[in-house]
Write a protein that binds this DNA or RNA. Structure first.
Length: 1131
RNA sequence: AGUCCCGUAGCUCAGCUGGUUAGAGCGCUACACUGAUAAUGUAGAGGUCCGCAGUUCAAGUCUGCGCGGGACUACCA
């Protein structure tokens, strides 16, 4: 029979995946889901751009499922959700990949390969896997506009980035400074952190380390801190440790930990024997002073004694020492500016007392921490920079790693012996020479060889230098507070990431180092004269073109690359002739106001700035779409992995805060990692990576998505296990599919067709229908709320429960007869309508998470319409259909059913065997009524003849009493235990008294206390002499006596079962009528005489006949019966 | 090193603002059902809620200190 509602043999989600994809393509469903919302309020979503130079993994399915869910949900709710795909195309990984492929290194670029060729190679490489990405996007059912993506290397995109940068420039947020970076003097290049992390980079080396003594200045502040501990003629030193003595001439500060405890110790210098007082961390005193020394006579020491006497003369905290001054250790040079703020003690949280002295030698030119802490001090501590012949500030050590000529006694010496050519290194390194000098001048407390691991350049094998290199910065720290307060308005999922990880990060935000000395990226649009006195930034191609024209007119260039660019023409043709990458703009020489040539600052912009610009750059703002920008920003919703907290989430927030003074996004979901099933990180190397394509091909996208979402909250890490996908497929999709199949099978037989016009009033439907509709409404409300709260897991779980427990396992199971008995009737019609409505609503509710199966289901339920579920409107909530009283009743029925079945189970009485009676006690009229109302359902489910509701007047009930801790706890506090014990001791009479009078007087600690009836829970747990079960305040007793009638009936049912089985095995249609033959059996015959009609109706038998002699048939054997059965179709 | 997440049954996870028998699914064992049937149901076993200390009448839940797993960021003077 071919019916209206499609029927299937099996559930094949992979096939559905393909079919629905095909449908979406032909139907242009994605486009429709947007155009059908034209004019509706928008829901703004930003797609974080992936980099397509690597293949996508299963974790991308997770991240994109989350994005997809909320975009689809909002569409259902009626919003218009535009979403543009994007590609992140610049950056180091791309360049490294290309270098590897071409077999070149960074040095070759511009030499053996032109920058233009190199950039061309990068451009190709970066889009290499675009097709694979698009393929996955499509197959996993992630709806995003891939036809018109934003691409960060396109001129329009780059132009918007320039514009943004210029806005910051005009707010004085861009400056040139320096950062301390790993630098290889031999290679003459800075090293990226990834180069430093290459295996073998860190090696154990033995260096000369020194604890230097810095002479304390005895000014007024000094007196105030140390007072009597120091006499006028005492020599006082702050002592600090370093493994790089060559940085000591560049020292401009000492750093102490504010909370660390320090002591001043009176003792002697081990090298000179001079009496002195030194300050160091309390924890470390015992490391440098032997305990015996504390006992020795202070005066009785001479140079060379093994143990020096010592005494602690002062104790305080690091914060007490702040801003104390000291004399410069080696006065080879002075900072060219701010020298008055140098040589003082500052505070830093990074200080530890693990090793050293708890006072850290701080040379801001050669240490990253040093630079930071010096910059943050108030007033800032200047770095040791001097002016070179061109009056540019430079550190004491040049780019080759040598002390500058004229700086101290070691001008021209390399700071490390490793930097000399073979055989040319001096006997003693600078480190050693300096240490010797210090010893001689009573400025060394301790000098020794020290073993530590130190990074080496992977190309030259020489140790790395931490060196100040020029960089361009965004002054993020200046806008810190704005960023922090804006962040508080963002709804983070999970909250802790926003408040904790992200919030803390913002509070401690450093200036953003924009500079990258690479080739493939967006060039800094800043041109400078050689001395840096004149600079200009460009915020558009047009501006640059005008400046180029000027330069050509002045004769600085012959021609320029933007000659044909037409200002104001936004066409693709116009922009396609423009390229803003390095190989083009580096050749541009401009003219400054004073007529000097200006060249571009060599660096590229950090790629994170690219992606953080996407809210504007994807629309070529402000050159195009200027008016709509208020509708396009900020985003209502974004989502990415938690690893983007300090990446994309941060750059979006920073750029938006700095340029627009507002948030970039209102709601953000940061999902956790996808690990393998054992909780290990997935990696291709370990072979535990799950391939998204084969997985989707095998299972379809829906169960994968459902599993990922329902298993745990997205922000928890997911231990991805295919067994979990199987389970979801079976338990959830299997059940839902079965429910649909059941519906389709009978709806087709009866020719049911859903017609909204003729639908029966819900309030007129039978109780079970009203119940499931009521529960469905609650579900709609719950699911909608969870989706609105960005809690997809809770939504999925609520749906799972409804489908499995309530719809399939209760509603359908209890209603089967309504569907399969007799001709079409009004009752049947209502059953179909109810089930239909549940299924269709479910299709809509699951569609954000399981878009394929949902669409299949939805379309199957609306035959001939061919409209995607994703274009439909979220089911309207019918509040008034929610009947909480009914829900409660049904919950009770389900409870009781399960209890009775459990009792039967214990007694090994099968459900087919009817029983006479169950009894349920009811202590109140209310409960008695409840019970009466579910009587029919209950009895039918558990196959029992009657329900007796026991009222307490009958005197058989044994009551038990339990205190309500929540009520009594706050009232009795400490005495709660006593009260609880007293209440538990109540006998039946006391319980009755409390019930009848509404309160009971109790003596607690000699005081009379009144217990109200509402302070306790009273229920029954036992009915003497019966088989009883008690659970959840419900008690049920079962009569397990089986008389002859019951037994016969049980046997009849047993027989029905066998006949039905045989019918099915014989391949008969559900509607065929039959004739039954049985081999004579006394017990069976006896049972059948009473139940013949019942059996006949059940199995659609026209006749049942008895045979006395043996015949071909099915052996049947149960209880006392041994017989044979055969049947044939009636004619 | 800092910040954040996680730690509850063999596995994957619930457990709301603290309230007295700590739950579900899977797996295991047993049984049942059989016109939704390559489906389903019921029951049983299985827990020192990572540890220690504290707050409280009461802690899986709050606080502190640890331990273990993970992520990010930074660095080693």
């Amino acid at each position: 029979m071919s019916g209206k509602y499609p029927e299937y043999k099996h559930l094949n989600l992979a096939q559905i995946n393909q079919d629905i994809l095909e449908f979406w393509k032909n139907d242009e469903s994605f486009k429709k889901s947007i155009t059908s919302r034209e004019g509706a309020p928008g829901f703004v979503f930003y797609e974080g751009p992936p980099s397509a130079n690597g293949k996508p993994g299963i974790h991308h399915v997770m991240a994109r499922a989350i994005k997809d869910i909320f975009c689809r949900f909002k569409t259902l709710q009626g919003y218009q959700v535009n979403r543009k795909a994007g590609w992140d195309t610049h950056g180091l990984p791309v360049e490294l990949g290309v270098e590897k492929e071409l077999g070149i290194t960074k040095e070759d670029i511009g030499k053996s390969i032109s920058i233009e060729e190199y950039n061309e190679a990068c451009k190709k490489a970066v889009m290499r896997y675009t097709d694979i990405w698009n393929d996955l996007t499509e197959k996993m059912g992630y709806w995003v506009d891939m036809d018109d993506p934003y691409i960060t290397y396109k001129p329009k995109y780059m132009e918007s980035v320039w514009w943004l940068l210029k806005q910051m420039w005009e707010k004085d947020l861009i400056y040139k400074g320096y950062t301390i970076q790993p630098y290889s003097p031999k290679a003459g290049t800075g090293l990226s952190s990834h180069e430093l992390n290459m295996p073998g980079s860190y090696r154990d080396v033995k260096d000369t380390s020194a604890i230097a003594q810095f002479i304390a200045q005895k000014d007024a502040k000094f007196q105030a801190v140390f007072g009597d501990a120091v006499a006028d003629d005492d020599q006082v030193y702050y002592i600090a440790w370093t493994t790089t003595p060559w940085t000591l001439p560049s020292n401009t500060a000492l750093t102490v930990g504010p909370k660390i405890e320090y002591q001043m110790v009176d003792s002697y210098n081990p090298y000179t024997g001079i009496r002195q007082k030194v300050v160091l961390a309390k924890n470390l005193v015992s490391k440098y002073f032997k305990p015996e020394g504390a006992e020795l006579d202070m005066e009785a020491y001479k140079l060379g004694d093994k143990v020096a006497p010592w005494r602690v003369v002062w104790e305080g905290h690091g914060r007490d020492l702040e801003n104390l001054r000291y004399e410069q250790l080696l006065d080879w040079a002075q900072p060219y500016e701010g020298a008055e703020n140098a040589f003082r003690i500052i505070l830093g949280d990074f200080v530890t007392t693990e090793d050293g002295t708890g006072i850290v030698h701080t040379a801001p030119t050669f240490g990253a921490d040093d630079a930071k802490v010096a910059r943050e001090a108030n007033p800032p501590v200047p770095p040791m920079l001097v002016l070179d012949e061109n009056d540019n500030p430079v550190p004491l050590v040049d780019l080759q790693g040598r002390f500058r000529e004229g700086i101290g006694p070691f001008g021209g010496w390399y700071v490390k012996n490793e930097y000399y050519a073979d055989g040319e290194a001096p006997d003693k390194s600078v480190d050693v020479e300096i240490s010797i000098q210090l010893k001689e001048r009573n400025q060394a407390f301790k000098v020794e060889k020290y073993n530590h691991s130190y990074p080496h350049c992977w190309r030259t094998d020489k140790p790395v230098l931490y060196y100040p290199l020029d960089s361009w910065f965004i002054r993020v720290s200046a806008e810190k507070e704005k960023m922090v307060s804006l962040n508080k308005t963002i709804n983070w999922k999970p909250k802790s990431t926003g408040e904790g990880r992200f919030g803390n990060w913002l509070e401690n935000a450093n200036d953003w180092n924009l500079s990258r000395s690479r080739y493939w990226g967006i060039p800094l649009p800043i041109w400078s004269t050689e001395d840096g006195s004149e600079r200009r930034i460009f915020g558009s191609v047009a501006e640059l073109k005008t400046a180029c024209d000027e330069a050509v007119a002045k004769g600085l260039m012959e021609k320029h690359p933007f000659a044909d660019f037409k200002e104001g023409d936004m066409s693709e043709e116009n922009y396609n002739q423009v390229d803003l990458h390095r190989h083009v703009v580096d050749d541009i020489v401009l003219v400054s106001e004073s007529g000097k040539p200006m060249r571009r600052e060599a660096d590229l912009i950090d790629v994170w700035f690219d992606s953080g610009s996407m809210p504007y750059a994807q629309w070529h703002y402000p050159f195009e779409n200027k008016e709509q920008i208020d509708q396009l920003t900020p985003a209502d919703f974004i989502a990415e992995g938690v690893d983007q907290t300090r990446g994309w989430f941060y750059t979006l927030h920073a750029i938006s805060s700095l340029v627009f003074d507002r948030v970039a996004y209102k709601n953000v979901v940061s999902n956790g990692l996808v690990l393998d099933k054992n909780g290990a990180k997935m990696s291709k190397r370990l072979g535990n990576a799950v391939d998204p394509f084969t997985t989707i091909e095998k299972y379809g996208s829906d169960p994968v998505r459902w599993y990922m979402i329902s298993n745990a909250s997205p922000w928890d890490n997911l231990k991805f296990d295919l067994a979990g996908v199987e389970e979801v497929k079976r338990r959830f999709f299997g059940t839902l599919y079965n429910t649909y199949s059941f519906f389709a099978l009978y709806a087709n037989i009866d020719g049911f067709e859903y017609d909204a016009e003729k639908e029966t009033e819900w309030s007129n439907r039978p109780e079970l229908d009203r119940w499931i509709l009521s529960r469905l409404q609650e579900l709609i409300r719950t699911v909608e709320q969870h989706f609105n709260d960005y809690e997809p897991t809770k939504a999925a779980r609520a749906i799972e429960y409804f489908v499995d427990e309530e719809l399939s396992n209760w509603y359908v199971r209890l209603n089967r007869r309504r569907f399969w008995k007799g001709e079409m009737s009004e009752d049947k019609q209502m059953a179909y309508e109810t089930l239909f409505y549940c299924l269709r609503s479910l299709a809509q509710m699951i569609s954000p998470i399981a878009p394929f199966f949902a669409d299949r289901l939805y379309q199957d339920l609306n035959p001939g319409k061919a409209e995607s579920v994703h274009i439909s409107k979220w089911p309207a909530l019918a509040e008034d259909a929610i009947d909480s009283h009914l829900n409660e009743r049904m919950a009770m029925a389900r409870n009781l059913t399960s209890m009775v079945l459990s009792l039967r189970k214990k007694e090994r009485i099968r459900v087919r065997q009817p029983l006479q009676k169950i009894m349920v006690p009811a202590l109140s009229d209310e409960k008695a009524e409840l019970l009466a109302s579910i009587k029919d359902i209950l009895l039918a489910e558990v196959n029992v003849k009657e329900l007796e509701i026991l009222r307490e007047v009958e005197g058989v009930l044994v009551k038990s009493i339990k205190p309500d801790f929540k009520k009594l706890g706050p009232r009795f506090g400490k005495h709660m235990k006593q009260v609880a014990a007293a209440i538990r001791e109540f006998d039946q009479a006391q319980i009755s008294a409390l019930e009848n009078e509404g309160h009971y007087e109790l003596e607690i600690n000699g005081e009379m206390q009144s217990i109200e009836a509402s302070d306790v829970e009273i229920h029954t747990e036992d009915i003497p002499g019966w088989l009883v079960m008690s659970e959840n305040k419900l008690t049920v007793a079962l009569d397990i006596h089986i008389d002859e009638d019951l037994k016969s009936e049980g046997m009849a049912r047993e027989l029905v079962n066998r006949i039905q089985n045989l019918r099915k095995d014989s391949g008969l249609e559900v509607t065929d009528r039959i004739e039954v033959q049985l081999l004579e059996d006394a017990a069976l015959k006896e049972a059948l005489t009473k139940n013949q009609d019942y059996v006949k109706t059940e199995v659609l038998a026209d006749s049942i006949s008895w045979k006395s002699e043996d015949f071909e048939g099915e052996e049947i054997d149960f209880e006392d019966v041994k017989s044979k059965l055969s049947l044939r179709k009636s004619h």
